[in-house]
C-alpha cells in the first residue's frame, strides 16, 4: 500500500474540558487526514476509536488538554496530555467496567469503564502515565501494516 507521506506529518489539537458540543472534533479531523493520506480503512477506524476515547476522557475529566499526532509511512503516534485530576490506580482504571465517572457523565452515555480498554485494544502500542493532581498522558501507536 502506497501512502502519500514523505517524511513525517505532525500537528496538534487543543482540547477543552467539559466542552461536549465539539467533543470528538479533533478525532474526526484526524480521521479525515488519514483518509486523505490513503491509510486503510480498518487502520483508520482503530486510530479514530482510540483517539476519540482519549479525547472524550479529556472532555469528561480534565480542565484542558492537547492531542498531538505524528504520522510516518509506518505508523501514527498519538499523544494526549491533559491537565486533569490524574489517576490514582492505573491498573484498576485499565480494568473493563471500572469508572470513576459521575452520574451526569453516565447519563450522557460515557463512563462505562471501557475507554482505556478500548484505547489499548485498538492500538499496537499503548502507554499511560499519570500524576494525581497534575494530569495524565496517554501514548498510542497504530502501525499501518
Amino acid at each position: 500500500m502506497a501512502l502519500n507521506i514523505s517524511g513525517a506529518i505532525e500537528g496538534s489539537f487543543q482540547l477543552i474540558g467539559g466542552n461536549f458540543a465539539t467533543a470528538g472534533e479533533a478525532s474526526t479531523q484526524l480521521k479525515l487526514k488519514l483518509t486523505n493520506l490513503g491509510v486503510h480503512e480498518d487502520i483508520i477506524r482503530r486510530a479514530a476509536i482510540a483517539t476519540f476515547e482519549a479525547e472524550m476522557n479529556v472532555i469528561i475529566y480534565a480542565a484542558a488538554g492537547r492531542l498531538h499526532y505524528y504520522i510516518t509511512q509506518q505508523s501514527i503516534k498519538i499523544r494526549v496530555e491533559d491537565m486533569g485530576p490524574g489517576i490514582e490506580d492505573i491498573s484498576l482504571a485499565m480494568q473493563e467496567g471500572y469508572s470513576t465517572a459521575p452520574e451526569w457523565v453516565r447519563e450522557m452515555g460515557w463512563g462505562a469503564g471501557m475507554g482505556l480498554p478500548n484505547m489499548k485494544k485498538n492500538s499496537d502500542k499503548f502507554s499511560i502515565d499519570s500524576v494525581v493532581g497534575e494530569g495524565t498522558t496517554v501514548e498510542m501507536v497504530i502501525n499501518f501494516s
Binding site: F52, E53, G109, M114
Partner: peptide
C-alpha cells in the same frame, strides 16, 4: 446508550438505536 459500547461492538453498515440525542452521539 453507552457510547464506548458503540465504539467497541460496532460492525460496518450498522444502525444505532439509542435514547441519547446530543451531538457527541453523531460523532461517535
Amino acid at each position: 446508550d453507552m457510547m464506548s459500547a458503540v465504539l467497541y461492538y460496532h460492525t460496518p453498515n450498522s444502525l444505532l438505536i439509542t435514547g441519547l440525542t446530543q451531538p457527541h452521539v453523531i460523532r461517535t
